[in-house]
């Protein structure tokens, strides 16, 4: 009863549709290791400042992490060996609100939720939150989703809406959803270090000139274009026949 009351308070029905959909959903703000952005049939390495769009998939490799800042001020950090799909992203610049649905296909995700309708799905679970910090971990091998809330509250249910049972997980608690079962009742969780295994912290500015695309390539190209005198002589010389030429050449004696 209490859970239902709280859920009603923190999860208002989305009645205000954003004014329009925009392509840009957010930016990649930090990358450690290797992450790939898949857009339609194209794949490209994720780099800081890369733009994220609706329908993009973000895949991280071993020992890799990526941090993304979305237009509604939501911050998502994807852990190693994970895959996230931006299923839906509608943003209204006027109200600065968004309606977003992310699909965590595998791995670990940490979410700092902006002031907007924010939902995460996994193959087994559905989580809805607002103004919250929580982690969600989907283990593909066991088909289990674990949701740990660090701040605020998250409503959790099975991805199959026909399976009854909704849990409201509050700060310091976690719930698990597996198979065709409803979410487990919230249990105290160890949230020290971010909860659910803190391998998703990333964000310190990269070392100067390290993980960036090498900007010196551009400088080197400009240098090459401007300083061809390293190869050629730096004077406006005309062909020999154009001027009277008197060459003082001492040829070696035979």
């Amino acid at each position: 009863m209490l859970a239902a009351a709280l859920a009603a308070m923190i999860l208002p029905v989305w009645t205000e549709q954003p004014a329009f959909a925009v392509d840009k959903a957010g930016d990649v703000v930090a990358v450690r290791g290797k992450a790939v952005i898949e857009r339609k049939t194209k794949k490209e390495d994720a780099r800081v400042r890369a733009v994220l769009m609706e329908s993009d998939s973000i895949v991280t490799r071993d020992k890799s992490r990526i941090k993304m800042l979305f237009r509604d001020d939501s911050i998502l950090t994807l852990g190693a060996n994970s895959k996230l799909v931006i299923k839906k992203y509608l943003y209204s610049p006027e109200s600065k609100r968004a309606e977003s649905i992310y699909e965590l296909a595998d791995g670990r995700l940490r979410s700092v939720v902006g002031s907007s309708g924010f939902k995460v799905t996994t193959p087994t679970a559905f989580a809805a939150a607002r103004g919250t910090v929580f982690t969600i971990f989907y283990n593909e091998e066991t088909g289990t989703t674990e949701i740990t809330v660090l701040e605020g509250m998250v409503e959790v249910r099975n991805i199959n809406a026909e399976i009854a049972g909704v849990q409201v997980v509050t700060a310091g608690q976690s719930s698990t959803v597996s198979g065709d079962k409803p979410p487990t009742p919230p249990m105290p969780a160890d949230t020290r270090g971010g909860g659910a295994g803190d391998d998703t912290t990333v964000g310190m500015p990269v070392l100067e000139g390290s993980a960036e695309p090498a900007p010196h390539i551009i400088n080197d190209l400009l240098y090459l274009a401007e300083h061809s005198l390293n190869l050629n002589q730096p004077i406006e010389q005309e062909p020999a026949g154009a001027t009277k030429v008197l060459i003082n050449v001492q040829f070696p004696q035979q």
Binding site: V29, V133, G152, A171, G203, M204
Partner: peptide
């Protein structure tokens, strides 16, 4: 909810300021 929101807002605001600051460096 008001009390919880105030606390979570502080934590969230911190993370947002930190992330935006680090990104601005980049």
């Amino acid at each position: 909810p008001v009390i919880l929101n105030a606390q979570e807002s502080k934590e969230k605001d911190y993370e947002l300021a930190l992330t935006k600051g680090q990104y601005a460096v980049e």
